[in-house]
Nucleic acid binder design. Sequence first.
DNA 1: TACAAATTAGAATATTAATACTATAATAAT
DNA 2: ATTATTATAGTATTAATATTCTAATTTGTA
Lengths: 212, 212
Amino acid sequence: MAGPDTKEKILEVSIELFNTEMATNVSTIQIAHALDMSVGNLYYHYRNKEHIIREIYRDRIAAEIDALVMNKDDRLSESGIIRYFNGLAQLIYKYRFFYTEMYALVRNDPDLHVIFHKRARAVARVLAEQVGTWIAVGIMRPASEGGIEALSEICWMHVTGWMSYRMLAEEGAGPQALARDSFRSIFHILRPYFTDTANERFGKLLEFMEFE
Amino acid sequence: MAGPDTKEKILEVSIELFNTEMATNVSTIQIAHALDMSVGNLYYHYRNKEHIIREIYRDRIAAEIDALVMNKDDRLSESGIIRYFNGLAQLIYKYRFFYTEMYALVRNDPDLHVIFHKRARAVARVLAEQVGTWIAVGIMRPASEGGIEALSEICWMHVTGWMSYRMLAEEGAGPQALARDSFRSIFHILRPYFTDTANERFGKLLEFMEFE
DNA sequence: TACAAATTAGAATATTAATACTATAATAAT
DNA sequence: ATTATTATAGTATTAATATTCTAATTTGTA
């Protein structure tokens, strides 16, 4: 367990544990144990459990969302959009512990709350921009400023929340099934807002596309 | 604190506490203290915290949802639909502790999980039926069987999840603002599925309607 | 090699929570 | 009025948890 990546390894194992047991049910002792590490040592690296979660959010979740959402290449074709939402779904699944208990985790850690807040606004802005470009290239029907904002926020809430919702209903669903499901549902919201030609292409693509 | 409504009083105060402090942060000791009651006495009435939450879910939340959702009068006019969604939003707010931590609460109590499961299916059926009647009376555009099911499930997830989502963003929002907001967002999802004439009436109604 | 810094283990402490148990008090039933 | 039942308080026990502290060990480097 030597090396400068101990901190990273802790995050890794914590994510694993959080995802299976739920973050609020996992204690620092359990994390240390899963790492074959003394509790004292764990505390040497991270002040407490909130600290670990905060780091996971900043260094992993937020970073990966940025890489996906902020990078706007390959998002103006129908197939690109499909990959985009699929990627989002994969990401949510990977960090599902966070999204299933988001409210509690954020509200119980003031520091995380602040970070979360700032990001929420930034992401909202980028998403609205994204919708704007979809309108500009004729994938989506024109809409008012407020309409764009509202729609993008609804989509974000839906994408981040849908999986938790489904996991309660369908106990044993795997990541692929959940991602596909998430994808389908978001399309139900968006389809009426896409143009006819775009929807036609989506239809054809989805017929042949396999989700991995 | 005498009388046969002690059990009811416990639920009452628990809901209050849960809503302000979040259910998972509240201990039986705190509940007893808030009731000016000994812990032993509390345990005489309810086996543990999960028991209390389960009772709240069954006797209050589920019952009130049934009263609202299952009763299908006054739901075929545009104004009735507005009242319907507004009522749902009020209900979610009243029991927001449950919806903000739904995943954890349900997953941590196997008994509640079972109850929740059964209900989820029942509610889904009723909602799909509801959408069907909207289509039948010309408020909503025709759709396939699967489309109806998908849409009603999306709506349910949206209504139950939106408020938690918003409460994290807008700290100080009151129940009226949240209900109005919830209402607006669900309309963004549904508007394209309503017929033009229905949307026209909705537009006029919403102009003059005040939410209480 | 020797020294300083970083890392680790493990014990010690304090807090908290859940729940069981016992003993009264109040109420209802006969 | 006496007895049984229900309701209540208060204490004790147990377990878990977070966190701190100290001492040892490892690692890097001059």
